[in-house]
Design a protein around this nucleic acid. Sequence first.
DNA 1: TCGCATTCTGCACACGTGTGCACGATTGTA
DNA 2: TACAATCGTGCACACGTGTGCAGAATGCGA
Lengths: 382, 382
Amino acid sequence: MFNDDQVPKNQTTPAAAAKRRVSIKDIARLARVSHSTVSRALRESPLVNPETAEKIRQIAEESGFRASAVARSLATSRTSTIGVVVTSISDPFVAEVVSGIEDEAIAQNYSVFLANCNADPGRELKIVNSFEDRRVDGIIVTASRVGALYGSVLERMKIPIVLLNNQHPSQFAHSVMIENFEASRDAVSVLIKMGHRHIAYIGDRFGYGSDSERYSGYRAALGEADIAFQPELVVHGDGGAEGGIEAMTHLLEGPEPPTAVFCYNDRTAIGALKAIRAHGLKVPDDISLVGFDDLPLAQYVEPPLTTVRQPKHEMGRLAMQVLLKLMAGSDAEQNIRVAGELVLRESTAAPKEKTACNYSSVPKKERKKRMASSSSRSAAGN
Amino acid sequence: MFNDDQVPKNQTTPAAAAKRRVSIKDIARLARVSHSTVSRALRESPLVNPETAEKIRQIAEESGFRASAVARSLATSRTSTIGVVVTSISDPFVAEVVSGIEDEAIAQNYSVFLANCNADPGRELKIVNSFEDRRVDGIIVTASRVGALYGSVLERMKIPIVLLNNQHPSQFAHSVMIENFEASRDAVSVLIKMGHRHIAYIGDRFGYGSDSERYSGYRAALGEADIAFQPELVVHGDGGAEGGIEAMTHLLEGPEPPTAVFCYNDRTAIGALKAIRAHGLKVPDDISLVGFDDLPLAQYVEPPLTTVRQPKHEMGRLAMQVLLKLMAGSDAEQNIRVAGELVLRESTAAPKEKTACNYSSVPKKERKKRMASSSSRSAAGN
DNA sequence: TCGCATTCTGCACACGTGTGCACGATTGTA
DNA sequence: TACAATCGTGCACACGTGTGCAGAATGCGA
């Protein structure tokens, strides 16, 4: 009756049998039940007798059995796996977002495939193909320019996709994004309230949508304060520190340098800071500086950087939560916008007296208080 | 003969059939061959007629077929997948290493599961179990304290493992590590050559092996220069900026503050920098500062930080290469040690005249030259 | 004691791909 | 023309797990 006790015919030698991983059938043999019952017992099915189930679980535990997710995936056509494609893991912004994604994923017993594309289209394609081969249940794309490339491939895959701070918003996908416009407008407004009227914007020529939204916020703040827009105060870098240096140098060597600069991101701001210092000027005494992102290093540069904080970790979790809903078949909010938060540190102050105009609405006393504290304060959002 | 053309019995309706992913059998039906032939054709087996193969490949291409890696894994019992467990992706050091691992992995058509454990033992266990379930072909553990936890689980898994800058070197595993001792000794020696004789060490009390190796290097440099060791000049932080602030403050408030400080890592050094500034002192005029790691931000703090560069990206690639060898069944070098490289920036200089002794061997001219340039120079070499 | 409901278990097949082996078709040689 | 060698193809099974369905075992009421 239990002739399964014999060595199965496909195993040539006992040694070979010992080499093989312990499978559900081995447990079944030990427990003297069928593999079906083992499967059900381990998945806590109510169909199996509690005593039998307990016995099976114990045997499985003792023999160190772990069910193969590979085989299960094949049987259920679900892998409990997602793919995350990023531009570069080395980018601190991305790292923080991935951390949030992974936290949420592990809590729901999902595993994440991580791949960085380095903005290389060929590699992007390879990654997406690989994700398709591995039958991931969903995909999150972070801070990438999702172009024509994805379109065709992703169309075919019919897999839920969530974009995070993507540059090219596309119709078919859900997304989580920072409120670029509002956050930028508020940040520049604060500079204006401090008394600045000669404010520059250093953008990112590879920033696409994000860049134009932040630029629009800058324009809106100027408009609300009836400050005439000066095209020569808008320069574009490459999104990194080097680009910030170049752009800032250009501004400083212009006819009338700004008293404050709003930057596309922190890395650009840090480059700008270096350029300002190289010109023998001081931040914030001569020029105020505002960044975007609130990278970990923002508070450790000298002076600590005033910047718009993105809730990076939270945004990662949010993206994963949306993806989980989509993978479960229920529908989720299409486009989630997250509020930024202006963090006032020591790189901003009222302009110097000689250049300051009488529009300043920030009393000296309060200004001093702000600058003394390096702790963060919310200015832009809930 | 080709009755496969009919709808298979398990498909109830044509609509359901349309919903299913295209499989190898679909291609077989279209090409009027068996699925075996399709499998062989797509894997470029020499067994199949070139013309037939070409036809099959074309049909597969047209219908957008992609073979399921899940099914293949089950059949071949290889997943072409590795697991990477890190302490925290947000750590810039880790991020760079992971980037290197992933570069090498993608080049060899491997995918990587990334998981961060946040130094939480429970989560570590969950991660390793998850990797086992998914039948990863290998595992890389980065900068973790591999303790008893892993031992038992990993023992059972019989999967190749490579440790990278791990704290507890264990016997059964291969590893890639920075030459902590040599790099530290050389860095401190350079400080001594500049004229410093009162040099402190700020360690990391969670650094375990790495910390004691770097500490040993510090002691060795002092010994070689016949400088008496002063226990009160050794303090330990927590490996982060906060710990650096505390430790440095302690040193500054001691009876005889050091003229130079060698820090366990860059983050500690940046905290120390902040503390020094808070005490109204200047770097490097009053105190020289040396870090370890060469994080991206190291060159953007003020002053740019002299530090020991770890070839992070390269170390990641190296670890993956070792793992690939192990997974292929061949054996690889057990313990690879990588040389660090001292990068001289502007946080180091000869001590002030009043405290400087006549042992200084760095002429003023050369010192000036060094400080003017922020470009990196190798001092510790390969 | 019989019939029926309930509870559990096992059979058999599915998931999609790889591969050893047998066999048919074709070609070459005696 | 007969036979052997070579080449290409398909059959059948394996990989490890999930699950619909049939049926065995048990309990319960009449």
